[in-house]
């Protein structure tokens, strides 16, 4: 029976769709039939909220079947600060690794989209909120360098509420500079970067590579911004306007090129890629 308990331990995280036939939408609070959510590729049938997808799911959604070749999958986080607070970072990592089968939050590699080769990266929000530590920063940087060297377009799908990962201190903070510098190099080499923002993309990830796409695409209703809404609310002591920091708000304010629904994202990306040289 160990496995059953373990499965529960492993699967019953709030990031996953909860067990049972019905679930409550995070956004509209409607009680929705889970199978319907799955059929709509993890979107709410009531309000079209796009629930977080895992990294592997995202690969399947966007790339040609069988085309993805993962790179640098051996990169492993190392707890450089020996961070121990209420729990140890080491344990947190192991737990996330066990839960997701990933070594850290980013998966990068090469693949094709409608037969067009490209460098592809995704952050998995199940892994410590998709936050960026040394491994994520290094993988994004290598992906950008690979795209520049191979003259391939770069697509990165970000989903990170955590921003820069606290447990690696300033090493995480500096990944913002490192990844941004790598994107700048890609840019100088004439490369193209399409940044796709999913719910939520905040803080240190949004204030670095995720904001630096030649084209920035968001999923509907995704929370996108720098400071989290609750901190802002506490600071200014007033309620935030409805839709604040959502994809539509970001589009309205000029920070997103377009909003794409998940179901048509692959085809729309192919259309865009056709305009690249």
């Amino acid at each position: 029976m160990a496995w059953d308990g373990l499965k529960k331990f492993v699967f019953r995280r709030k990031r996953d769709l909860p067990e049972g036939l019905w679930m409550k939408c995070d956004d509209c609070d409607a009680l929705i039939y889970k199978k319907a959510v799955e059929e709509r590729v993890k979107t709410c049938p009531q309000c079209n909220f796009h629930f977080p997808m895992t990294g592997p799911e995202r690969l399947q959604l966007l790339l040609d079947p069988g085309s993805f070749q993962e790179r640098w999958d051996d990169l492993t986080p190392a707890d450089p600060l020996s961070f121990v607070a209420v729990t140890a970072y080491k344990d947190k990592l192991a737990e996330a690794q066990l839960q997701t089968g990933l070594r850290d939050a980013a998966i990068v590699g090469t693949g094709t989209l409608h037969s067009r080769p490209l460098v592809f990266g995704v952050t998995d929000s199940r892994f410590i909120m998709g936050s960026m530590g040394s491994v994520v920063g290094e993988k994004i940087t290598r992906a950008a360098e690979l795209a520049a060297a191979e003259k391939l377009p770069l697509i990165i799908v970000s989903g990170s509420g955590g921003g820069a990962r606290m447990y690696e201190g300033c090493l995480s903070l500096m990944q913002m500079a490192k990844t941004s510098a790598a994107i700048a190099r890609l840019h100088d080499a004439g490369g193209f970067f399409i940044s796709i923002l999913t719910h939520p993309t905040m803080a240190g990830v949004m204030a670095s590579f995720a904001a630096l796409g030649d084209i920035v695409i968001a999923e509907p209703k995704a929370l996108i911004g720098f400071t989290g809404p609750r901190v802002i609310e506490q600071t200014i002591k007033q309620e935030l306007p409805k839709g604040f920091q959502r994809a539509e708000f970001m589009l309205e304010h000029g920070f997103v090129d377009l909003i794409l629904e998940r179901q048509r994202m692959r085809d729309e990306l192919a259309k865009i890629l056709n305009y690249l040289p």
């Binding site: 690969l59 079947p65 069988g66 070749q69 993962e70 066990l98 089968g101």
Partner: peptide, 30 residues
């Protein structure tokens, strides 16, 4: 852990076989 075997323990540059249907993705839910 419910993820396809593409990451943990797989050698570098392993091809990942994607299922054609998106909603058939290995969602680690019940």
């Amino acid at each position: 852990a419910g993820a396809p075997p593409l990451v943990a323990g797989s050698p570098p540059a392993t091809a990942v076989t994607s299922a054609p249907a998106v909603h058939a993705a290995p969602v680690p839910a019940a």
